[in-house]
Amino acid sequence: MTASGTKSDLRFYLQSARDALLWKLDGVAEYDVRRPLTPTGTNLLGLVKHAAGVELGYLGDVFGRPHGDPLPWLADGAEPNGDMWATADESRESVVALYRRAWAHADATIEALPLETVGRVPWWQDGKDEVTLHHAVVRVIADTQRHAGHADVLRELMDGAVGMREDNTALPSSDPAWWEAYRERLEGAARQAAEREGGRPAVSP
């Protein structure tokens, strides 16, 4: 495969992950888009804020291409996990706009540099801090897809909205009755397996 073909594949899967993550914010109220939904505080808007910082770092700063956006939550001495949630003063619109600027900056880096270009990751251990652009893009794709999966689960728990993307849910049915029967089947299988091992389900449905 040619270098341009490889870049095209990488860009496709990166953009697919970006779109999926951002789509999960659609139709969500201001409180719900920010509120923590797991014991570790995972929330929809925080995932987007984090993803923006990852792209600006790995596909910008690492390759000597500063983006110009101040990211105080990533500065030395900043509060831990500050990139994983939005303060009351950070609007949804500003976080989404930052993410879209991160896309443009990252895409420009991918376009401008050969995939074999070596960058330096300042937050990695000295002596082990070099990375190729190819590696960095794959790393960002993996991170974004992981967080898009987190957003999938958060959104389903929040209001039942599911699907891979707006034009393709990638689900076998849209019938609630089908899903209820499916879930009951899984619950039954789990209980049978637990009983076979001589145990009991830890939590009732």
Rank of each mutant, 00 (worst) to 15 (best):
M1N: 03
M1G: 09
A3H: 01
S4M: 10
G5E: 14
T6L: 13
K7N: 05
K7G: 06
D9I: 13
L10F: 11
R11K: 14
Q15A: 08
A17M: 09
A17Q: 11
A17L: 06
L22P: 00
L25F: 11
A29L: 02
Y31D: 15
D32H: 11
D32Y: 10
T40D: 11
T40W: 03
G41F: 00
N43F: 00
N43E: 05
L45R: 09
L45G: 10
L47A: 02
V48M: 07
V48T: 10
H50K: 04
A51F: 01
A51L: 12
E55M: 11
G57Q: 10
Y58H: 09
L59D: 11
L59Y: 10
G60W: 08
D61P: 00
H67L: 12
G68Y: 06
G68L: 09
G68R: 05
L71H: 00
L71M: 10
W73P: 05
W73H: 15
G77W: 02
G77N: 03
A78K: 00
N81R: 09
G82D: 04
G82P: 02
M84S: 11
M84I: 02
T87Q: 13
D89P: 01
E90N: 05
E90K: 07
E90G: 02
S91I: 04
R92V: 05
S94Q: 14
A97D: 13
A97G: 10
L98H: 14
Y99E: 01
R101M: 05
R101T: 09
A102E: 10
A102R: 08
I110P: 02
I110M: 15
L113T: 10
P114N: 08
T117L: 03
G119E: 13
V121T: 07
W123V: 15
W124N: 11
Q125S: 13
D126N: 08
D126I: 12
D126G: 10
V131E: 03
V138M: 10
V140H: 01
I141Y: 06
D143W: 00
T144Y: 13
Q145P: 00
R146S: 09
G149N: 07
H150T: 07
A151K: 04
V153I: 14
L154Y: 08
R155K: 05
M158D: 14
M158A: 15
M158N: 14
D159E: 08
G160V: 08
A161P: 02
M164R: 15
D167S: 12
N168E: 12
L171W: 01
P172Q: 09
P176M: 11
A177P: 03
W179K: 01
Y182D: 04
Y182V: 00
Y182N: 03
E184L: 12
E187W: 05
E187L: 12
G188T: 14
A189C: 03
A190H: 06
R191H: 05
R191D: 15
E195T: 00
E195P: 00
E195F: 04
R196K: 13
R196T: 15
P201F: 04
P201N: 04
P201M: 08
S204M: 04
P205H: 15
P205K: 14
